[in-house]
Amino acid sequence: MSHAGRPAESDKRTLRREFLSVRNRLTADDVREAAAALADRALDLPELADARTVAAYVSVGGEPGTLALLDALRERGVRVLLPALLPDNDLDWGSYTGEGSLARVQHGGKMALFEPSGERLGPDAVTEADAVLLPGLAVDGRGMRLGRGGGSYDRALARLERAGARPALVVLLYDAEVVAHVPEEPHDRPVHAVVTPSGVRRFPAGA
């Protein structure tokens, strides 16, 4: 499809600004309440109930909160992997063993991230995950995810594909971020499900 090149990327940039501006207006209470509801919904997912290893991330700023979910997964005995951003925007991984295992890392002019402070397991560690929790800004009815635009998770998803790994792909969002249509490019892959504070939606295209 000819529209899937630069025009799609331009549309994505516009949408990212819109969704980020809404998130930036959220209060700390908004984020905290949504995080508790999100954790409850996500923990009921069969894909997480059966998972031995989950690749996730630590939310920052107005992102839907993940720490409550990470701690609940650990209490279940799940091995939780968290990303560490590499200079080339690829992702290395390390184990999450509680909030004390996180380090705040400033990446140039980008936002500071909370990354695992322990041993690095290598970019291929994500291929061991039974489920991957993805950050995003929106998802549409086909399961196409709008990311932040750095390309880090596109690379992780491509790595899963090359390895023949088929973990459940789940994006965590606010209710209003499930939309009718997200512009796509040829490398974009649909997710299997979205979890929001009010519920879960599955996508047949990601199955």
Rank of each mutant, 00 (worst) to 15 (best):
G122K: 13
L113G: 00
G98D: 03
V78E: 01
V60A: 07
L45N: 05
L121A: 09
L134T: 02
L81Q: 05
D140S: 10
D50F: 00
L38M: 06
T27L: 07
T127I: 09
L85W: 10
V80A: 06
L70S: 04
S59D: 01
G151Q: 05
V58K: 01
T66Y: 02
L70G: 02
L134Y: 08
D30E: 03
P46A: 06
A39T: 07
G143W: 08
V105E: 01
G118W: 13
D88V: 13
V60H: 04
G98K: 10
D140H: 12
A72K: 09
M144H: 14
M144L: 14
L157P: 01
L26W: 14
G150F: 11
D130A: 08
R145M: 12
D50N: 05
D71T: 11
D40M: 04
G147H: 03
H107D: 01
L134A: 05
D124C: 04
R16G: 00
L113K: 08
P64E: 01
R52A: 15
L73M: 05
A156M: 12
G100W: 09
V78F: 08
P87S: 03
P87H: 06
D154R: 12
V78Y: 04
G62N: 04
D90W: 13
R16V: 00
G151E: 02
L15N: 01
R142C: 11
G94K: 14
A49P: 00
G150P: 02
M144C: 13
A103D: 10
L81A: 08
R25M: 07
L157E: 04
L102R: 06
L67E: 07
E33L: 13
V105P: 00
